[in-house]
């Protein structure tokens, strides 16, 4: 695919990340802020909260969407940096194939975790 298309996706993925990662940050890491907003969540990284989110279709879908968008955005940005180091033709192909394989593998692994988590929660009686 040509750089114009890849770059356009990179910007689009950035916009998706902005919304989803913003939500993620507030929910997971800014519990004090949530408290101001009147949401007194239990410890967000506690197993009960994790199991509850794993069972929610909304959270599962947004996890997978955020995972895909963030991996694409990050790996395309990394590819930019590597390409600007002026590698030779062979190294360019290695970078393209290597980053695609690693990115897809991480996506597959993360998606598996998101889909398998509800099962783990049910088994544990969560």
């Amino acid at each position: 695919m040509r750089d114009r298309t890849l770059w356009t996706w990179h910007i689009g993925a950035g916009a998706v990340i902005l919304v989803l990662l913003g939500l993620h940050m507030v929910i997971m890491h800014l519990s004090g802020t949530l408290g101001f907003l009147g949401v007194q969540d239990a410890e967000p990284t506690g197993w009960a909260s994790v199991a509850a989110r794993a069972g929610s279709l909304f959270f599962t879908l947004t996890y997978v969407a955020l995972l895909g968008a963030a991996l694409y955005h990050g790996f395309y940005g990394f590819r930019n940096i590597l390409m600007e180091l002026n590698p030779g033709r062979t190294v360019r192909s290695v970078i393209n194939v290597g980053l695609s394989v690693v990115g897809l593998a991480l996506f597959a692994f993360g998606t598996w975790a998101a889909l398998a988590a509800p099962g783990a929660a049910t088994m544990a009686g969560g």
């Binding site: 199991a51 794993a54 598996w112 975790a113 988590a117 099962g119 783990a120 929660a121 088994m123 544990a124």
Partner: peptide
């Protein structure tokens, strides 16, 4: 990797 351990169990 860290957060994927949730798929293994509590």
């Amino acid at each position: 990797f860290v957060t994927s351990t949730r798929a293994v169990g509590p």
